[in-house]
Structure formats: C-alpha cells, structure tokens
C-alpha cells in the first residue's frame, strides 16, 4: 500500500479517459477547474453548502469541493459540460432557459446537475419533492420559484404551487 503526497490517477471524465498526477491535498473541484480547465462547475463556498461544484460521480451527484482529486481514480465523472451534445441542450437546460430559471448563472451548472439527477431518480416529482431534491444547491438570484417551475416543466408537469 503506497502512502504518498502525490498520486497517479486514471478516470473517465465526460466520456474520455484522463490520466494525471495530483497532489494528495488537491480538491477535486480545483483539479477540474485549474488543471483540466473545466470551468463549468463553480466554487461558491468553503464548506460544501452551496452546491455550485456539483458533478456526477459514478452516476450520483456529489460536491466536488468535498472530495480529493485522488479519489477520482477509477471513477466516472460527468460535469455540466457533458450535458449538451452537439449543441443540443437537454430538456432540463431548455426548461431552465424557457422558464427564466437562472439569472447570474453562477449556481446554474450545479443546479442543472442536481435537477438532472433528480428527474432521473424521480421522473414525476411534486413541487415539494423538487425543492427537497435541490436542497444541496443554493441560488441567491431566483428565489427558486422559476427553478421549481422549470424542473416541473422538464418533467412534463405544470406546477400547482
């Protein structure tokens, strides 16, 4: 068993294999943003509360500021950059656009990841379930009204809040 302050890692990022050497202390979010120039995920807090850095780790949402980069080894990671393919936005992204569910856009990358995951788990959520499902993502612009509406619309439902 190796013990070291740097590690060689290999993982799948947005469908492509990444091989890198990372310091043990580097957070996954800094690795994605600073080393791999994947700046979609954002940093908004120090403590894992804002969720702007949310990515999918082996298919589940996690906050990439609450993990070490070295822990990406062997995993499959997807960021917001992976959602739109060939320029086509996903239904969640389209719904956010149509329903004005973003303003400054800083929380949006994380919010969209959480919304996408939520609908995967629960394709037909109630407004309360949407609010619970987005509990790990803070937005300070929208008051969440249009975000809830957009997620409901992406699920093919009108909200009746």
């Amino acid at each position: 068993m190796d013990r070291s302050d740097t590690f060689d890692i290999e993982f799948t990022l947005n469908g492509e294999t990444v091989v890198a050497t990372v310091p043990a202390r580097r957070l996954l979010i800094h690795f994605l943003r600073d080393d791999l120039d994947l700046t979609g995920p954002k940093i908004g807090c120090d403590t894992g509360h804002c969720g702007a850095c949310t990515v999918l780790y082996d298919g589940r949402t996690i906050k990439s500021c609450m993990m070490l980069a070295v822990q990406a080894d062997g995993a499959t990671i997807e960021t917001v950059e992976a959602l739109a393919s060939d320029g086509e936005m996903t239904p969640v992204q389209e719904a956010f656009h149509e329903h004005h569910a973003l303003q400054c856009g800083y929380c949006t990358a994380g919010m969209v990841m959480s919304a996408t995951y939520l609908l995967e788990k629960n394709p037909s959520p109630t407004p309360d379930e949407i609010r619970e499902g987005l509990r790990g993502n803070l937005c300070r612009c929208t008051g969440y009204v249009n975000i809830v509406e957009a997620v409901a619309a992406a699920a093919g439902k009108e909200t009746s809040e």
Partner: peptide, 24 residues
C-alpha cells in the same frame, strides 16, 4: 479553500487500513 500538505493512502483491506492508521 486549500488543504494543508497531507499524505494519502487507499488500503485494500481493513487490516491494512488499521496498520496505516497506526503508522502515525
């Protein structure tokens, strides 16, 4: 936020983990 320098290891068994925890 930047962590202080630290070492890391990923044991494969509980025994290895306990050994590592006892190394420092």
């Amino acid at each position: 936020m930047i962590l202080a320098p630290v070492e890391y290891c990923r044991p494969d068994t509980i025994d290895e983990a306990i050994e590592a925890l006892n190394s420092s």
